[in-house]
């Protein structure tokens, strides 16, 4: 169960802003690394939680483009529905928002992060074995 191909990652956008460069790049890198990536696009808190439960994912990735309170609400709901399920995030996340997310245990990869760092985080957070 430690192969990346056996790990499922949910990716979603919390806002209604449709810029797709970031999340699709990250999704491609994760798929190239072997993970199964489930993209649900723009989703609200309930939709994210439902997908995290129904799809039995190992990690949730949030693309954040809006107000931090919207993202924090989604994270809290995921934490409640699936305690211990790791969440990481990227997007337009200014320092004050980054700190708030980190307080909830979310790893944040702001613009300028390397795809390799994000893939490494996915290995670590899902417990998958990285290729030697």
């Amino acid at each position: 169960m430690n192969q990346p191909s056996q790990k499922r990652i949910l990716m979603s956008k919390t806002g209604l802003d449709g810029h797709w460069r970031g999340p699709t790049l990250v999704a491609r890198a994760l798929r190239d690394a072997g993970f199964e990536v489930i993209m649900i696009g723009m989703a609200n808190t309930d939709e994210i939680v439902r997908a995290a439960v129904d799809e039995d994912v190992d990690l949730v990735g949030l693309n954040i483009g809006g107000h931090i309170d919207v993202a924090l609400r989604a994270v809290r709901a995921v934490n409640e529905a699936r305690p211990g399920l790791p969440v990481f995030a990227g997007g337009t996340v200014p320092p004050h928002a980054k700190r708030q997310l980190e307080e909830l245990g979310v790893e944040v990869y702001p613009p300028g992060s390397q795809l390799a760092e994000i893939v490494d985080a996915a290995y670590r957070l899902t417990g998958a074995t990285a290729p030697a």
């Binding site: 919390t14 806002g15 209604l16 802003d17 449709g18 609200n44 809006g66 107000h67 919207v70």
Partner: peptide, 22 residues
């Protein structure tokens, strides 16, 4: 505002209400 304008929604649309802080 992107949420309302781009989608031609009023603020009471459920997709907007779900992201009210945005």
């Amino acid at each position: 505002d992107r949420n309302t304008a781009d989608h031609c929604y009023n603020v009471d649309h459920p997709d907007v209400v779900a992201r009210r802080e945005d």
